[in-house]
Amino acid sequence: MAQLVVPRERARRFAPWSVVGWLTILLMGLTMFGAFIYAPTDRFQGIAQRIFYIHVPSAWLAYLAVFVVFIASILYLVRRSGFWDRVALSSAELGVVFTTLALVTGSLWGRQVWGAWWVWDARLTTTLVLWLIYVGYLMLRSTMGDSPRTARFAAIVGIIGFIDVPIIHQSVNWWRTQHPTPIVVTPGENPALPPSMLLVLIVAVIAFSALYFWLLNARYRLETQRERIAELRRELQGAADV
């Protein structure tokens, strides 16, 4: 993974983040080792079951990211600080990235377990709707450009979208259970996950969480940079007007 370009004079200020960066790389390496070598092959699902170690953490990050959007949106509306708006935007983008990963890896795993690329299972469907909501959120932001109004509107969508998630899940759950359920092993509901598998999963979740915070910081820095450019533009405009 490439280290992000940090201006030399600022390099020291971001030192804690480079620690997170190295920790992420280390933990991701450990996850790969665990997923391919340490964890035993599942007796029923074969080696494709190893997708589990990236699918579950991706889904976890997707939900963590939209939760952060929700909290940051509320805090933005209350405090009106650009900080929370930038956090919300950065987290929403990561949310879309990891929702996409959860959907794609879920689809590949589902191909093995269910024999189909896609089933309208409750969890899958909720995640798909989540993806749609946050893609809409990013579309709203990109058509509106940077302004306090954009930040306010985006915060509203971020709050409504998150409150909706449990209701969506409930509705999709009932909607599916009224149909004949396919005879499958539902991911995550394996009755007894062997301890070695569980250990790898825990490491993977921690690794992905570190990755999330590292990426969030990198994405956030992009926004501060853009803020700085807007500021310079204003100054330049001011200097020209004089």
């Binding site: 709707v129 709203l140 509106m144 109004r149 509107f153 969508v157 409504i160 979208g161 909706d164």
Partner: peptide
């Protein structure tokens, strides 16, 4: 009320609205 203030108002409303209305 949000969508009317965007450039692409007629498009933005269903884009934002339909996913949250799934339930």
């Amino acid at each position: 009320a949000l969508a009317v203030n965007t450039r692409t108002r007629e498009v933005m409303l269903p884009v934002l609205l339909f996913p949250v209305l799934v339930p």
